[in-house]
Simulated scan of single mutants.
Amino acid sequence: MDALIYTVMSSAERALKAQQVHANNLANLDTGGFRADLELATSQAVGGYGYDSRHMSRLQANAVSGGEGVMRQTGRDLDVAIVGDGLFAVEWQGGEAYTRSGNFSVDGEGALTVNGRPVLGDGGPIVLPPYTSLSIGVDGTISILPPGQNDMQPVDRLRLVRGEAAELTKNEAGLIVARDGAELAVDDTVTLRSGHLEGSNVSAIGEMVATMNLNRDFEIQMRLYKAADDMAEAGNRLMRD
């Protein structure tokens, strides 16, 4: 009965945290390029002498869904979507992190940004010279039409990388990073579609079903907790008798 309480209470806590994971996914249903978080539970032994038979449920909410979101056409030159696997690289705390969001902007100094973060190219953060027209190729090459000229000129290329979903997680800013902290290698096979944006890959139905299942799990855990309490009380009566 003592061993059961460890499992029941930790499982109830895991259900609560898992609910938070799914609630965050639902909150980002319309966030462009958002990758759903996956809640993974593992068994963890309780440390200390005499606790070998006691195990707890541990939530690991640091996996990222690799599914693709729905792509929609915008017609905007600075909107690009990745076709298949791949990630855009952005500057983060002196290094780099990654995102699927391709709704780029150009600030007053010509810096290419996404959600306020500098976008990385072959030589670091991309800064564009003055232009009258801009295009982004399928390989990430950025070309501009300088004022007073008639021909497009390539100026930089987006840093496009690829990583296995099982090797990726998210940092505190919600950006995708490698689980081991290393930078992902550039992958020249990643292709883009200009004038399009990718939506979130969150499935509203899937998240709601998962939430209902967690509610049922919590109810079962509370029944088990009551059963453990009844067993403890029965043991106490036997000892008193």
Rank of each mutant, 00 (worst) to 15 (best):
residue 1 M to L: 10
residue 3 A to D: 12
residue 8 V to N: 06
residue 9 M to L: 15
residue 10 S to P: 03
residue 11 S to R: 08
residue 13 E to V: 04
residue 14 R to D: 08
residue 16 L to D: 12
residue 16 L to C: 07
residue 16 L to K: 14
residue 17 K to G: 09
residue 17 K to M: 14
residue 18 A to K: 09
residue 19 Q to V: 00
residue 20 Q to I: 08
residue 23 A to Q: 15
residue 25 N to G: 01
residue 25 N to Y: 03
residue 26 L to T: 02
residue 29 L to N: 02
residue 31 T to H: 04
residue 34 F to A: 00
residue 39 E to K: 04
residue 40 L to I: 12
residue 40 L to E: 15
residue 41 A to N: 08
residue 43 S to N: 14
residue 48 G to L: 08
residue 48 G to N: 06
residue 48 G to R: 07
residue 51 Y to F: 14
residue 55 H to F: 10
residue 57 S to C: 10
residue 59 L to E: 06
residue 61 A to P: 06
residue 62 N to Q: 12
residue 63 A to Y: 06
residue 63 A to S: 15
residue 67 G to R: 15
residue 75 G to S: 06
residue 80 V to H: 02
residue 83 V to Q: 15
residue 84 G to L: 01
residue 88 F to I: 09
residue 88 F to W: 03
residue 89 A to Q: 01
residue 90 V to N: 01
residue 92 W to S: 03
residue 93 Q to F: 10
residue 94 G to M: 10
residue 96 E to S: 10
residue 97 A to Y: 00
residue 97 A to V: 00
residue 100 R to F: 01
residue 100 R to N: 07
residue 100 R to Y: 01
residue 102 G to Y: 02
residue 105 S to K: 13
residue 105 S to V: 12
residue 105 S to C: 07
residue 105 S to R: 14
residue 108 G to H: 14
residue 108 G to L: 15
residue 110 G to T: 08
residue 112 L to E: 04
residue 113 T to G: 09
residue 114 V to L: 08
residue 115 N to K: 11
residue 116 G to Y: 01
residue 116 G to H: 04
residue 117 R to D: 08
residue 118 P to E: 12
residue 122 D to W: 02
residue 122 D to V: 13
residue 128 L to E: 07
residue 134 L to M: 09
residue 135 S to V: 09
residue 135 S to W: 12
residue 135 S to N: 11
residue 135 S to Q: 15
residue 136 I to Y: 02
residue 144 I to Y: 08
residue 146 P to C: 00
residue 146 P to F: 00
residue 148 G to P: 11
residue 149 Q to R: 12
residue 149 Q to A: 06
residue 150 N to K: 15
residue 150 N to G: 10
residue 153 Q to V: 14
residue 153 Q to M: 13
residue 157 R to W: 07
residue 158 L to Y: 00
residue 162 R to L: 09
residue 167 E to M: 09
residue 169 T to Y: 02
residue 172 E to Q: 14
residue 174 G to R: 02
residue 177 V to T: 04
residue 178 A to Q: 14
residue 179 R to C: 04
residue 181 G to R: 04
residue 183 E to P: 13
residue 184 L to R: 03
residue 186 V to S: 12
residue 187 D to M: 04
residue 189 T to F: 05
residue 189 T to M: 11
residue 189 T to W: 06
residue 190 V to D: 07
residue 192 L to A: 00
residue 194 S to D: 11
residue 196 H to Y: 13
residue 197 L to P: 03
residue 198 E to T: 03
residue 199 G to K: 01
residue 202 V to P: 00
residue 204 A to K: 09
residue 204 A to C: 06
residue 204 A to L: 10
residue 206 G to D: 11
residue 206 G to K: 08
residue 207 E to W: 05
residue 210 A to N: 13
residue 212 M to Y: 11
residue 218 F to S: 10
residue 220 I to G: 00
residue 225 Y to F: 14
residue 226 K to L: 08
residue 227 A to L: 13
residue 232 A to D: 13
residue 233 E to K: 15
residue 234 A to W: 14
residue 237 R to W: 12
residue 239 M to L: 14
residue 241 D to E: 14
